[in-house]
Simulated scan of single mutants.
Amino acid sequence: MGLRGDILIGVKEKLKTGCAATDSRGALREGGSYEWRMMIQSLLLSAQAQKKPVMLHMDAMNCNENGAHFDGVKILEE
């Protein structure tokens, strides 16, 4: 967990978003309500357990030292 209960999400791919923290560390942050954070965490862990790829949606214009703001996730079919 990051500051103020943010979820920090790391990605393996090299990103070029214009947000320094996201580009250098592959970090995204999500600081919504507790319910929203738990739902996102559940979706990501479920996809990881099933080895399914995901598409992460982010707002690179909303950037701070923890990374670009994470807006959502889509679990992709292989």
Rank of each mutant, 00 (worst) to 15 (best):
Asn66His: 12
Leu43Trp: 02
Gln48Leu: 15
Gly10Met: 13
Phe70Arg: 00
Arg25Tyr: 08
Asp59Ser: 11
Lys74Met: 11
Leu44Gln: 05
Glu35Arg: 11
Leu28Phe: 09
Ala21Phe: 05
Met58Phe: 08
Cys63Phe: 05
Cys63Leu: 13
Gly32His: 02
Ser33His: 13
Gly32Leu: 12
Tyr34Asp: 09
Leu76Cys: 14
Ala21Thr: 02
Gln48Lys: 13
Arg25Gly: 06
Asp59Arg: 06
Ser42Asn: 13
Met1Asp: 08
Asp6Ile: 00
Gly32Asp: 03
Ile9Phe: 02
Gly18Asn: 13
Arg37Asn: 13
Met1Asn: 12
Arg25Lys: 15
Glu78Pro: 06
Ile7Ser: 02
Ala60Val: 08
Ser46Asp: 14
Gly72Ser: 15
Tyr34Asn: 12
Ser24Asp: 06
Val11Cys: 06
His57Phe: 07
Gly72Cys: 10
Gly31Asp: 01
Lys12Ala: 07
Ala49Met: 12
Asn66Met: 07
Met61Leu: 06
Ala20Leu: 14
Val73His: 01
Lys74Phe: 11
Ile40Trp: 03
Gln50Ala: 11
Ala20Ser: 14
Met55Cys: 11
Arg4Phe: 15
Met38Glu: 10
Lys51Ile: 07
Leu3Ile: 13
Lys12Arg: 15
Pro53Val: 00
Ser42Met: 08
Met58Trp: 01
Ala47Ser: 09
Pro53Lys: 01
Ala47Tyr: 02
Val11His: 01
Leu15Asn: 00
Gly10Leu: 14
His69Phe: 08
Lys12Leu: 06
Gly31Leu: 00
Cys19Met: 09
Arg4Ser: 12
Ile40Met: 15
Ala68Phe: 00
Leu56Trp: 01
Ile75Cys: 07
Leu56Lys: 00
Lys16Ala: 15
Asp59Lys: 10
Met1Lys: 14
Lys74Gly: 10
Lys16Pro: 05
Asp6His: 05
Met61Asn: 05
Gly67Cys: 04
Glu35Ser: 10
Lys74Ser: 14
Asn66Phe: 10
Ile75Asn: 05
Lys52Gln: 12
Ser33Asn: 07
Met1Arg: 14
Arg4Ala: 09
Trp36Glu: 06
Gly26His: 04
Ile7Trp: 00
Asn66Thr: 04
Lys51Arg: 07
Ser42Glu: 12
Gly2His: 07
Phe70Ser: 00
Ser33Lys: 10
Gly2Thr: 02
Met55Arg: 12
Ala47Cys: 13
Leu44Lys: 03
